[in-house]
Nucleic acid binder design. Structure first.
Length: 578
RNA sequence: GCGCCGGUGGUCCAGUGGUAGGACAUUGCCUUCCCAAGGCAAUAGCCCGGGUUCAAUUCCCGGCCGGCGCACCA
């Protein structure tokens, strides 16, 4: 059995995750997290929130899953995500119809042509299926968009889409979010939420799915001035697999500290380098095996339409590398696009340290002259004069000034323009922030953490399976068992379980089956500690605490038990210290 | 989406043209029980639709789901 198959079996049997809607045959690409999985997911999200929101001082929002069409026209997802597909009637292979046309004709932007025309071009040029060389003439050209479409309200006049990334919910709201940040750069806005992609072929349980959870941070920065606090992570070692290394024959992974990676220019953006450093520590915290982990730089042709440089965090499972996080320097792509499409202001005003005084040429044309003189063009002439004054004030030196509007020259007496050069005080300027984006796939991280936590060993000649999850992430922190369900042990155990729960610990109570069996149940879901109440406990007020990874046991007083378990779970105390 | 392989209790599998069996798990009882112990008992299953047939879990076709390969992964 492969690592993935073993994991899927355990996940299903113990309640981490399983295929959704299987009563109705199932739906590919949709998975339900069971009780253990939902708890693990929640813990990992909390750990993410703690590191990327709380510790960084960023803000978290929660935006809708559905957004209207114009959002995705602006973001580029509507075009970039919409592929023209033609299927071969002979061998069934599907191909990008626009690419076939571009490859076989002089046409360069086939994607912008109507489907019928692309179909005609395929027939006219006798284009064949690249796989089996059958003619593709008369095969229908269809659209395939990876976004799920829906209608907002009745009828189809207001199309909406399920977001393919949570990021747009942040970018679109930038003007409002900037206000909340008191218009001070840098600031970060994070979101943990669902995203949807109508994948052609979902695969490998949680790895390629159609509905998934993303944890994304959009860190808005002033590209001129802002610098990350690199010193905080400069000594963290990064396993880097650069684009250059991927392209060269003998190139391999290199272990560099954050500082070295920046100094050597391996990671171009200091901001990206900073988050690689932060994230390395975070992955370790949530239980990723760092011997099965790397950062891989995107190759030039691999980058998304918005990214100028991009590194992926990848984990290894079954010999395959899985992308678990993308670190992209998105520049001002998104804010520019939304500014352009919405007409709203997606800048922040950056005040100078000292106001500066500049000479500024301005005009204030006399419209009572321009109006009668130029009729409907008067407004455009005024705009042209204003633009000319800014561009070339010297043009106003003569008695008359000439501007062109729609290819037509108009001459205006300078005195009617009220041209003047004034000293103007400027307090700052409007700048468009750049965006640094770490984007985490929560489900893939869960898959990785479970795969990496899966261990087997031997206890008293019996094989044992356990998950060595970090206590912070484990679905349950403590299992509480009465050695036998009699003679008052159950009552005491139940009281202890209540006390531990009251102290905020996640507790499972189990009185069913032999004690060894109960330990094994907890081992399989990664519960780090178990407490057993026996006859002696009734006499001396002490219980057995057993550690998952070593199966070692210690006697501890019930008094102060919650506090000690809490400290064990947070790493404040080790089992050996007890 | 294409190709190959598969789909039988919760899980993992065996098997059959006359509606099924094991292991593990689960539940109850017994055993003073700290690492999947033993005994007794119980619960629970042939992915969906169509076809062939007296009869289909089994054969055929289609679908759905899963694994792998190809393609896709903005």
């Amino acid at each position: 059995m492969s690592e993935g198959e073993r994991l899927t079996e355990l996940a299903k049997r113990r309640g981490f995750y399983f295929p959704s809607s299987s009563a109705y045959g199932g739906t590919a690409g949709f998975w339900t997290y069971g009780p253990q999985g939902a708890a693990l997911k929640s813990n990992i999200e909390d750990a993410w929130r703690d590191r990327y929101v709380v510790k960084e001082g960023h803000q978290e929002i929660s935006a809708p899953d559905i957004m209207p069409e114009p959002v995705f026209e602006a973001s580029g997802h509507l075009d970039g995500f919409d592929d023209m597909i033609v299927e071969c009637g002979e061998c069934g292979a599907t191909h990008r119809a626009d690419h076939l046309v571009e490859d076989n004709t002089d046409i360069e932007e086939a994607e912008s042509l109507p489907n019928e025309e692309v179909m005609d071009l395929i027939a006219d040029h006798g284009i064949e299926c690249p796989s089996c060389h059958t003619s593709l003439a008369d095969q229908p050209v269809d659209n395939f968009n990876l976004m799920f479409e829906t209608n907002i309200g009745p009828g189809s006049s207001s199309p909406g889409y399920l977001r393919p990334e949570t990021a747009q919910g942040i970018f679109v709201e930038f003007p409002q979010l900037s206000e909340y940040a008191r218009n001070q750069l840098p600031f970060g806005v994070a979101q943990i939420g669902k995203a949807y992609r109508n994948e052609i072929s979902p695969r490998k349980s949680l790895v390629r799915v159609r509905e998934f959870t993303q944890a994304e941070l959009e860190h808005f920065i002033d590209p001129e001035e802002d610098e990350p606090p690199l010193a905080e992570v400069e000594d963290v070692t990064l396993p880097l697999y650069s684009a250059a290394a991927q392209e060269s024959e003998d190139g391999g992974q290199r272990e560099l500290t954050v500082r070295e990676a920046v100094d050597e220019g391996v990671v171009e953006s200091e901001w990206v380098a900073y988050y690689l450093g932060v994230s390395t520590e975070w992955y370790e915290r949530v239980g990723v095996d760092m011997d099965r982990f790397r950062y891989r730089q995107h190759l030039a042709g691999e980058r998304a339409h918005y990214a100028s440089d991009c590194w992926d965090a990848e984990s290894e499972v079954d010999g395959d590398w899985i992308e678990i996080t993308g670190f992209a320097y998105r520049g001002d792509y998104d804010l520019s696009k939304h500014a352009e499409h919405s007409g709203e202001d997606y800048t922040v005003f950056k005040q100078y340290d000292e106001p500066i005084t500049v000479e500024r040429a301005t005009v204030d044309p006399d419209m009572s002259y321009l109006g009668p003189e130029f009729g409907g063009d008067a407004g455009a002439v005024a705009d042209a004069l204003e633009a000319l004054a800014e561009r070339n004030p010297d043009a106003f030196d003569d008695d008359e000034v000439t501007v062109e509007v729609d290819g037509e020259s108009h001459t205006v007496p300078v005195e009617e323009t009220n041209f003047s050069v004034d000293e103007v005080t400027e307090n700052g300027e409007h700048i468009r922030p750049h965006v640094v984006e770490p984007s985490f796939g929560v489900g893939r991280i869960i898959y990785t953490v479970l795969a990496h936590a899966y261990e087997t060993d031997e206890v008293d000649g019996e094989e044992r399976t356990y998950l060595d999850l970090p206590p912070e992430q484990a679905p349950t922190t403590v299992g509480v068992f009465p050695l036998m369900d009699k003679d008052g042990m159950a009552e005491l155990a139940s009281d202890i379980a209540d006390d531990l729960r009251a102290a905020g610990l996640s507790v499972t109570y189990d009185d069913s089956g032999a004690i060894g069996r109960r330990y094994r149940r907890q081992d399989e879901v990664g519960t780090p500690y178990c407490v057993t109440i026996d006859y002696e406990s009734l006499e001396d007020g002490e219980v057995t605490v057993r550690e998952r990874d070593t199966t070692e046991q210690k006697r501890l007083p019930i008094d102060g038990l919650a506090d000690r378990l809490e400290r064990l779970a947070t790493g404040d105390l080790t089992f050996a210290d007890l």
